[in-house]
Design a protein around this nucleic acid. Structure first.
Length: 330
RNA sequence: GCCGAGGUAGCUCAGCUGGUAGAGCAGCGGACUGAAAAUCCGCGUGUCGGCAGUUCGAUUCUGCCCCUUGGCA
């Protein structure tokens, strides 16, 4: 597979803006790597690209799933890779744009070979945690996969304990061993990852402002419509930020102002977790999007150089890792 | 101008009778393989308004000054 250009970074950092500029200049098409923008009818609250933006370049994996269906990293990986192949078959540049760290990694680095979610099994394991306690479930994990158990920060990370036990129950193989096997034979797609990150205070300003803009754009009505269509329970399951708060406002449980403040706070924290994720990946080349033309130029320069190194794989490219700009500060 | 209340973390505030300070919220760092906008772990970030004085030692006691605030004028 030919190289792809990925634009990653926290929410509200300016990924969309930059990626559209790049798509136009590189004859590109965009594959969204966003776990929430996949849902139909949730465009406002997930800041999905607008029709105008989608008119500037073809977009894939946006607004195509009903909220009563659950997306999953495995399905995303499969469908996104198909998109990439099709785009390249058309002779165009494939751009991956999104802030869902796991999805970006699943797409670019692949997932281990194993089973997807088994809802019934998970329900049983969760029930066990509720009745016997998290420690008891962790003890079971320690029995079958001590390595993974030791890796977790706490028995309270029930989501991961359950997943590890689920995979072991379904395959008979320790979760950590499947991970190790995948690390030995990764199915990577060559990719340049551009990280977009404004200074922190500016990022928070943008987040706060954008939540206000979402409200102004009719987010409350969007949620009202979803609830009317019977999706309230699905929204709880999907857990996209803000929908639960606005639904609570619609039920009269809190004021709109309280809801908005909470949503802003949740987005700020989410941005921090995203930065934590992407900063850990040393392949990411960071740039500040405050000056858009400059950022576009910088990104294009990175990309040109990356393509050059990829086509002359002499190990010569290894030394080029130092000048990607500093990590986002603080 | 007079009387009263108060200046302690980014914010709201706690700090018996002197031993350089702690809660909530906000914030910061980290982990992460099919729920990931999920989930989990960790971290007080401080001229205690300022300057003197008493004291072995002052956020705490005394004096003066500055600022905020309520009332009376």
């Amino acid at each position: 597979m030919r190289p792809v250009l990925a634009v990653v970074g926290p929410t509200a950092s300016g990924k969309t803006r930059l990626s559209l500029e790049l798509a136009e200049r590189l004859n590109g098409e965009i594959v969204s790597a966003d776990a929430m923008q996949v849902y139909r009818g949730m465009e406002i609250g997930t800041a999905a690209p607008t029709p105008e933006e989608r008119g500037r370049a073809p977009h894939h994996l946006v607004s195509f799933l009903s909220p009563d269906t659950l997306m999953a990293a495995g399905r995303f990986q499969k469908e996104a890779r198909e998109c990439l192949r099709d785009i390249q078959a058309r002779g165009r540049t494939a751009l991956v744009v999104g802030g869902s760290g796991l999805y970006v990694r699943a797409l670019l680095d692949g997932l281990f070979e194993g089973p997807g979610r088994d809802e019934a099994l998970r329900a049983r394991l969760r029930e066990e945690a509720n009745t016997l306690g998290n420690a008891a479930l962790m003890a079971r994990l320690r029995d079958v996969d001590p390595d993974y158990a030791a890796m977790l920060s706490s028995e309270n990370d029930v989501v991961r304990v359950v997943r590890a036990l689920e995979v072991h129950a379904l395959t008979g193989i320790p979760y950590s061993r499947l991970h190790a096997a995948h690390r030995e034979r990764p199915d990577r797609i060559p990719a340049l990852q551009i990280g977009v990150a404004p200074p922190r205070d500016l990022l928070y300003d943008r987040i706060n402002r954008r939540v206000d803009e979402m409200i102004a754009a009719g987010w409350v009505d969007e949620v009202r419509g979803l609830v009317a269509a019977g999706h309230e329970g699905h929204l709880e399951r999907i857990k996209a930020l803000g929908y639960r708060e606005i639904a609570a406002y619609l039920r009269g449980e809190q004021s709109l102002e309280e809801a908005v403040e909470a949503v802003k706070r949740h987005h700020r924290r989410y941005a921090r977790r995203q930065l934590s994720w992407f900063r850990a990946d040393k392949r990411v080349r960071w740039l500040d999007p405050s000056d858009v033309p400059a950022a576009v130029d910088a990104a294009r320069a990175f990309w040109a150089r990356f393509l050059e190194e990829e086509t002359v794989p002499d190990g010569e490219g290894e030394g080029g890792g130092g000048d990607g700009g500093p990590l986002p500060q603080q």
